[in-house]
Write a protein that binds this DNA or RNA. Structure first.
Lengths: 310, 310
DNA sequence: TGGATAGGGTCAGGTTTCCTAATCTAAAGG
DNA sequence: CCTTTAGATTAGGAAACCTGACCCTATCCA
């Protein structure tokens, strides 16, 4: 690799040559004429060959200067194009989030992110991941309902708030079925999300090992629809006390067994990101915003847990 | 024109990425690891995107780094190639010199130039110029026997030593013809250079307006051959007291009229160069060497002129 | 003719950037 | 468990850089 001349001198020369004078270059580079003059001279000394002919009316490129200019312009343009592209991609924040979490948590809060960090352009994909789980090359941030125990070594995880599960239904549904113990659930319609019955399985394992078949009932494409179905009196949904806080507070949903709350074995809602990007400004911004936004959710969860311990 | 990142940081990153580590880069750039580390971080901050994944065993390029590296390598290589080429041409010194001056003055002294300035590779062309005179794009330096009065505005001139003309011949030739006054030259064979009879014309105009026909006699392809012919007793040459000093001192040539010396109306031997290159290191070196080497010639000319004034 | 303008060169002095050298950290290897 | 390796980090001093004021020259224009 042959040695390069001083790069800043090259930049100064390129600008001066392109503008046909030192003043133009000094404006472009926001320095004084003297600075351009010295840079150009330095480069000429380095190469041992004059690049400009100085005349009282201004400078004119020598033959050597004319040969050097297009090479530099081209090289700098290449560099600028690529670095710009990378910078650009540094401000685009791609987030992927499963439908339930997206509808019930992320979407209602997203506007505050854009307000807090207008310099990032957020692109949200609301969808389940493909079978392989979250892939950092698809998005910068992925929401997840599990802490992905040891599953992806290249992924970093930031837990936002825990998932607290308990069966819930509309007040009228409870009245009609007069459910008082887990065994009574056999008389109820269980409402599921299509992809997994794991929430019902987890809860049933803890509180009703023999009293309910977690595979029975109806399935919906995502947990938000299942919850809405419960509100409409279709059946009993395994509700997250945190994510469904609104429905519980308004009375649209009631917990069948307020003391039988099962923390999700997978931990709760968290965000994932590739190790490479985990500490980039855009990901940092999102992490910090998400963690702050989840503060009230963590507090609510803690309150529920405290009330159970009594 | 989009803004460029700090160029030195780009250089540091490029070297680090190419070597796959900061130590390799620090060796190539002759700085410490810390310097590379800071440069890379600066660039990452500037772009807002990490370029390396830091691991205890070393660094690994991120996706962004992998995309940036080839662009930088290519751009720097282009620049290095072109600047190298220009530097190279800065050390090649092309000189063009008419045959007479070349044989009698330049060639015998050339070795001392190479000794004094081994960094320049001198390429000598011994030839007359084409009709248009010396062209700076053909050579960096041109020797001339005239000062080119106001003829080429873009040329710079450095006079080396004056031309002092007087008719001379072999001692035996003078004895045979018993020449004692300019009028006796009509009985002599005049020896000329093919291209121009101006020396004889200039001398005859001054000292023998009616006594000699400057167009008569024999012509030779250059003044050196004409001089050698005179030494051999063929005729009378219009000799330069400076350039033919050796022949006069050894007695091979004698001046027919020692007091009738005519300074060339064109001044004398000088070197020419294009204004653009006149102050480049290589041309400066040659100018300084040539001027110093001509010191004894100027002294000899001065001595001749002083002896005439007595 | 002579002042105004425009382009560049140069220098001292202060600021920014840069590098070094020493000290930390974390992992791997003997 | 100690050594080695590869980077990160920091203070402080060296180098590069820029500014701002001045000079020069040629041209324009009144």
């Amino acid at each position: 690799m042959p040695k390069l001349p001083p790069l800043n001198a090259l930049k100064a020369f390129e600008a001066a040559a392109r503008h046909g004078g030192f003043i133009g270059a000094s404006n472009e580079l926001h320095v004084t004429r003297g600075a351009i003059s010295r840079h150009v001279k330095l480069l000429e000394d380095h190469l041992g060959i004059p690049l400009f002919v100085r005349q009282p009316q201004g400078v004119r490129l020598t033959e050597a200067g004319q040969q050097l200019l297009p090479v530099l312009t081209d090289a700098f343009e290449q560099i600028a194009r690529e670095t710009d592209r990378l910078s650009q991609s540094a401000t685009e924040l791609r987030v992927i989030c499963p439908p339930g979490t997206s509808i019930r948590w992320l979407l209602p809060r997203l506007e505050t992110f854009q307000t807090a960090y207008p310099e990032f352009r957020l692109k949200l994909t609301t969808d389940f991941y493909a079978d392989r789980g979250f892939d950092p090359s698809d998005a910068d941030i992925g929401f997840s309902v599990t802490n992905w125990p040891n599953r992806a070594p290249d992924l970093k995880v930031l837990p936002l708030f825990p998932t607290l599960l308990t069966p819930a239904c509309a007040p009228g549904y409870r009245r009609d079925r007069s459910v008082t113990s887990p065994e009574d659930l056999t008389r109820c319609e269980l409402l599921h999300e299509t992809r997994s019955h794991s929430d019902w399985i987890a809860w049933a394992n803890t509180f009703a090992p023999n009293g309910v078949d977690p595979k029975s009932g109806q399935a919906f494409s995502n947990i938000d629809i299942a919850t809405k179905a419960a509100v409409m009196g279709v059946g009993v949904v395994m509700a997250d006390l945190v994510l469904c806080r609104e429905e519980f507070e308004s009375g649209a949903l009631v917990a069948l067994f307020p003391k039988l709350v099962c923390p999700s074995p997978f931990g709760g809602i968290c965000i994932l990101g590739g190790r490479e990007k985990w500490n980039t400004p855009k990901v940092d911004a999102f992490k910090s915003w998400a963690f702050d936004s989840a503060q009230t959710d963590r507090a609510a969860a803690q309150q529920v847990m405290a009330s159970l311990a009594v």
